[in-house]
Amino acid sequence: MDPGFGLWLFAVSLGASALGGMLGMASGIFIVPILTMFLHIDIRTAIGASIVSVIACSCGSASPFLEAGLVNIRLAVVLETTTTLGALTGVLLAGIIPTAYLFILFALILALSAQQMLARRGETAGAATTADTWGWAGALRLDASYPDRGQRVEYRVQRLPLGMLLMYGAGLISALLGIGSGVLKIPAMDTALRLPIKVSSATSNFMIGVTAAASAGAYFLRGDIVPAVAGPVALGSVVGSLLGARILMAVSNERTRLLFVVVLVALALQMALSGFGLELGGPSE
């Protein structure tokens, strides 16, 4: 591969990741469409590169959240039992699913992300002081507290089995498409578990690394990860996510949000067209 292409991959990933970070979104969702549609990289190679960048971004951004006491590490590891199981299922399915369906599934996830961004995420009403699910959450001591404006706010984890089921789906999609699946984790954590928004964001980001490690490890050993592509993409994503977090405050307004919705919808349409094109155009592996 042309070494200059590596520099190009680095720059593109940096841009995508910085833009994603500005809106508090994971960059993974942009990496695969950009690599396949603009740089004409095979979708499986793109997914392999993207999943490594998902790990890199998760690990690279976790420390400040851990130090601030926002990550519920006990809950994270409990939910990781099903996210990694989902990832394992995804690894098994990835070899069987035709490329065209991967494009179409990706288009659906992009459309879902656009819808979620449009709906704007709010603090769930009546966030969790009642203790209705004492069973699992109690036995595993998952209820905790987090610091907010100098005070400790206690919260309880609700409906753990439902949350774990949704996390299985998130792990599956993450492995199949090489994304962090924030779009599926956020509803699981906000709606099923009813976590405070800060805890849910920090814990979700912390979990993504382990979920992605299961699929990335399998793809790496299987030989589906091309180092010359995955390396520059991961590096660009880490640098981009650090930059994006810094400009988050400055530009996050209504207009950029709408711009992103438009970009997501456009990418969704393009991916869907590619998918149906492959479907109709016969074999083009």
Partner: peptide, 20 residues
């Protein structure tokens, strides 16, 4: 969780092909 990841690695290895 660790065993699940290990299982994924074993699956990856059993389908392995030469490094691209």
């Amino acid at each position: 969780v660790l065993v699940t990841i290990l299982a994924a690695l074993v699956i990856g290895l059993s389908f392995s092909k030469p490094l691209a």
